[in-house]
Design a protein around this nucleic acid. Structure first.
Lengths: 256, 256
DNA sequence: TGATCTTGGTTGTCCGGACAAATATTTGTT
DNA sequence: AACAAATATTTGTCCGGACAACCAAGATCA
């Protein structure tokens, strides 16, 4: 039996035991076949039982593999109906995805913030206008790049302003994963009530251009977020500048 | 034996069979105990074996529950070392919500759609790949520009594909206000279950460039939306191309 | 004391099986 | 041909067991 199974498999699983777990290898094979077009977008994957026979593994292993593929947003399973291919390529780490909690968490945990400069600044006219604050207000300014796990190029250049009252979280940046505003909430016992997010195109700033390997002044994508407390006071403003060719923002909406 | 187990459990699992799966109920109990401070942040959760005995379930069920808690970012497991509590509640991380789909997808109510071309097309290879459908499937394709109220320049160039079964709404486009997907829902009695939206940069297509007063091939912003029914079938794909210098996407998130 | 080794405990991987729940398909009926 | 019922298919849940990989802490040795 096992002989037949091996023979039928279009792509046999690497028998030479690497250290990678079985289900991982199954993931890699299926992912490759989706990418190559062997399993087309919209088409149905073989059933779990079919995959078991093909790879000669237990159903648990196949399900573990499918779970991983689902978490990547590549496929979707529905009880009774099977598993269908959603995308051809996994969203790379350059994509900012809100498609699912898992993907969002993946982004939040696998992206690191590397600070290149930080310090207290005092708002001048231009900045007061931009942040909607009084001239003379003091803010902690943190500048740096965000790096995805294995990637060579940074995901984006980042400039964050944090109202000086909450500057105590400054030392956490770059050392912990997670979001800045949640640290502020934790440390100071406040609650961010609204977040406003803007996405628009703007010229690539010189400071960002070097690291992002982009031409200064070329069109870049800016993502701006404004964090406010319940009384409307702005406590954090974050600006992310992305290289235009590596920007991808995905939102998936489930109506229920 | 089972009697002892039940007795030892600080919070017994609801025996009155709800429809919720076992592992879900385990998740709810543990999440509640983390939130209440019974398991403090930084402390170690009981071992999987311990949880098995306490809840009287198999290790598989416990692991499924822990996996869910990990996905929520509440706990973290390390092989050989156990599971520790990371946060007191995940609420602070991800529970921001948009007011409505309309806002998230930025449907402006006062925007006029001026159709410049429309007709049934048959999917070739490239299109089947893009829409994730069978080669030969028939779609209604509508192309045109969107104009804001009094503005001279169009907001964006738009290309919409609608599965031919629902092409009956074709004549409404440009004549009525509202959204295409809601017309389909109304007219055919179906329900759009998921909407996926992608924003990325791409070269300005020649057809769009003229009307948008932009250079062909210059970087433009593409907004792609995929509308799916509950069973996963794609029924509408909309592409909006914006001139980079006039694009602005704003979302306001409120905490519930 | 300090470093290495051993040992026990804990999570990760993998197998087998069984039934439930949801969906798809076929069959039967009108 | 159209609708309803029965059947088959497929994923979800849950159980049992076994071993591997990893970690922490105690034991041993220099």
């Amino acid at each position: 039996m096992s002989r037949l199974v091996k023979r039928n498999s279009p792509v046999a699983i690497a028998a030479n035991d690497e250290d990678t777990p079985l289900y991982r290898r199954v993931v890699d094979v299926i992912r490759g076949e989706i990418a190559s077009g062997h399993f087309k977008v919209g088409a149905r994957l073989p059933t779990e039982d079919g995959l078991c026979q093909r790879f000669g593994v237990s159903r648990h292993t196949v399900r573990e593999a499918l779970r991983a593929l689902r978490a990547e947003g590549l496929v979707e399973s529905r009880q009774g109906a099977g598993t269908t291919v959603l995308r051809r390529d996994a969203a790379s780490l350059y994509t900012y995805s809100v498609a699912s909690i898992e993907e969002l968490l993946q982004y939040a945990t696998r992206v690191r913030y590397q600070v290149s400069r930080s310090g207290i600044v005092i708002a001048d006219d231009r900045m007061a206008e931009r942040l909607g604050c009084q001239k003379g207000d003091r803010w902690l300014r943190v500048e740096g790049f965000r790096y995805a796990d294995g990637e060579r190029l940074p995901v984006c250049w980042t400039e964050v302003f944090i109202r000086a009252e909450y500057a105590g979280i400054g030392m956490m940046i770059g050392r912990r994963t997670g979001t800045i505003y949640s640290w502020i909430e934790e440390m100071y016992g406040v609650r961010v009530e609204t977040v406003e997010q803007q996405i628009r195109c703007e010229p690539m700033p010189a400071v960002a251009a070097r690291g992002l390997k982009a031409k200064p002044g070329s069109t870049a994508v800016g993502m701006h977020r404004y964090y406010r407390l319940g009384d409307g006071t702005l406590i954090e403003v974050a600006t992310n500048i992305h290289a235009a060719d590596r920007f991808n923002y995905t939102v998936k909406l489930d109506r229920r």
